[in-house]
C-alpha cells in the first residue's frame, strides 16, 4: 500500500510541487524587478556577471586560513552529493525508466568514496553550524531541517545499497519526495539562486571595474 503511494501518487505530487514551486519561486523574485543603473559603466556588467559565477567557486587566498573548514567540508559535501545524485548507477537506471535517457554510471568503488566524502562534509558542516557562535546565531530551523533532511535522504540511500529489499528502496524514495516538497520553500533554493546572485554582484562590481 505504502509502496504504491510512494511509487505513484506521492512521487507525482513531489515532482509537481518541486517543479512548479521552484519555477514559481524564481518567477516571483524576477517579477519584482531591479531599478536600471543609470551610471556610466567602465565595462559591461555581463562580463562581470559571468566572471563572478566562475570566480566564486574559488575562495580568496586572503580567506584561506579563516575558512578552511567551510571550504574543504563544503566542497566534499557538494561534489559528493552531485556525483551521487547524477552518477550513481541506480539513479541513472531510475531516470532511464522515467525518461529513456541514460549515461555512464560511476563504478561501485567510486560510489562508495563519493558517498563517504559527502557524509563527512555534511556532518562537519552541520556540526560546525551548531558549534560556531556565528552560524548558531544566524541559523534558523530552516537550515537544520534542510541539513538533517539531506542527511536522512543520503542515509536511506546508502542503507538501500544492497538493493535486496524493496522496503529500503521505498523508504529512500519517500525521503527524497519529502526533500523535493520541502525544497522550493527553503534555503535549499540556493542551488538555483546562487547563479543570479553571483551574476548581480559580479555585474555591479564589474561595471565599476572591480573583479568580484
Amino acid at each position: 500500500m505504502f509502496k504504491h503511494l510512494v511509487d505513484g501518487i506521492f512521487w507525482d505530487i513531489a515532482l509537481w510541487v518541486f517543479t512548479i514551486g521552484v519555477l514559481w519561486r524564481i518567477l516571483s523574485i524576477f517579477l519584482v524587478g531591479n531599478k536600471k543603473d543609470l551610471s556610466v559603466a567602465r565595462t559591461t556588467g555581463m562580463t562581470g556577471a559571468i566572471a563572478a559565477n566562475i570566480s566564486r567557486f574559488f575562495p580568496r587566498s586572503e580567506m584561506q586560513s579563516r575558512t578552511r573548514l567551510h571550504v574543504i567540508a563544503g566542497y566534499m559535501f557538494h561534489l559528493g552529493l552531485f556525483a551521487l545524485l547524477f552518477f550513481a548507477a541506480p539513479h541513472i537506471l531510475f531516470v532511464e525508466s522515467q525518461t529513456g535517457l541514460s549515461w555512464p554510471a560511476m563504478p561501485y568503488w567510486a560510489f562508495i568514496v563519493t558517498a563517504q566524502l559527502a557524509f563527512v562534509g555534511l556532518l562537519l558542516l552541520w556540526i560546525h553550524r551548531v558549534m560556531d557562535p556565528v552560524t548558531r546565531l544566524i541559523s534558523s530551523a530552516d537550515d537544520h531541517v534542510g541539513s538533517i533532511l539531506t542527511f536522512i535522504v543520503m542515509l536511506t540511500g546508502c542503507m538501500a545499497l544492497l538493493e535486496g529489499f524493496e522496503g529500503l528502496r521505498v523508504l529512500h524514495r519517500f525521503t527524497v519526495e519529502l526533500l523535493m516538497v520541502y525544497f522550493p520553500f527553503s534555503r535549499l533554493m540556493h542551488a538555483f539562486m546562487f547563479i543570479p546572485s553571483r551574476a548581480f554582484t559580479g555585474a555591479w562590481f564589474g561595471r565599476r571595474g572591480v573583479k568580484a
Partner: peptide, 16 residues
C-alpha cells in the same frame, strides 16, 4: 530489512 540496512550503513560509514 533492518539488518541489511544496518550492514550497508555500517560498512559505508566505517572508513569515515
Amino acid at each position: 530489512i533492518t539488518a541489511s540496512a544496518c550492514k550497508e550503513a555500517h560498512n559505508l560509514f566505517g572508513p569515515t
